[in-house]
């Protein structure tokens, strides 16, 4: 074989292998994509909640995307204690104003940002932690009345899901 035909052989082998690799990727893509959330799962991605039944000082847990969402009707003192905080005391610096649409309603995802446990504090008889909000029994994270992390191993504040007030008594989460 001449040097020229050897080069041709190499080129054909490399392009053959490259096309094969692209072909495998094309076949794999729809199968992997089928594992992403299906349309019915996505259809459940928003939920409407009637909040008129939650009296002041009480809270309600609803499911959104398979996760618990905490909706708390905060009392005046709770709002004040959430706003009267020195930013330097916070591990994850966020003002209460940035975390709520309306001051009396706090909406957060009820999943501890440490390892995914559900904090307690929704019922008035529950433990509320050192800062009057929620307490995660798994590894001892304390959240305040704005759902911000104040003490313990969790790195971040309780997440605020996207939501809007459709009317004064109904919110749409998601």
């Amino acid at each position: 074989m001449t040097a020229d035909s050897e080069d041709r052989r190499d080129f054909l082998q490399l392009t053959g292998a490259a096309f094969g690799a692209v072909g495998v990727a094309c076949v794999a893509a729809p199968m992997i994509n089928s594992l992403n959330p299906a349309k019915d799962t996505l259809a459940l991605a928003s939920t409407e909640v009637d909040i008129s039944t939650i009296p002041e000082g009480e809270a309600k847990t609803v499911m959104w995307r398979g996760k618990p969402v905490f909706i708390r009707h905060r009392m005046k003192e709770q709002i004040e204690s959430a706003r009267d905080v020195d930013m330097n005391d916070l591990a994850d610096k966020e003002t209460d104003e940035d975390r709520v649409e309306k001051p009396e309603w706090l909406v957060t995802i009820g999943i501890c940002t440490h390892l995914g446990c559900v904090p307690v504090g929704q019922k008035s008889s529950d433990v509320h932690g050192d800062y009057g909000g929620w307490f995660c029994p798994c590894h001892g994270s304390h959240y305040d009345t704005s759902g911000r992390i104040r003490k313990g191993p969790a790195p971040k504040n309780l997440a605020v899901p996207p939501y809007e007030f459709i009317s004064d008594t109904v919110i749409k989460i998601g």
Binding site: I32, L35, N36, P37, A38, T41, A45, R65, G66, K67
Partner: peptide, 17 residues
Amino acid sequence: VTLLWGGFSVDNPTLTR
């Protein structure tokens, strides 16, 4: 994580796969 779950939390799609 969403791809592993097939949703937004561990749920039925996760179990079947």
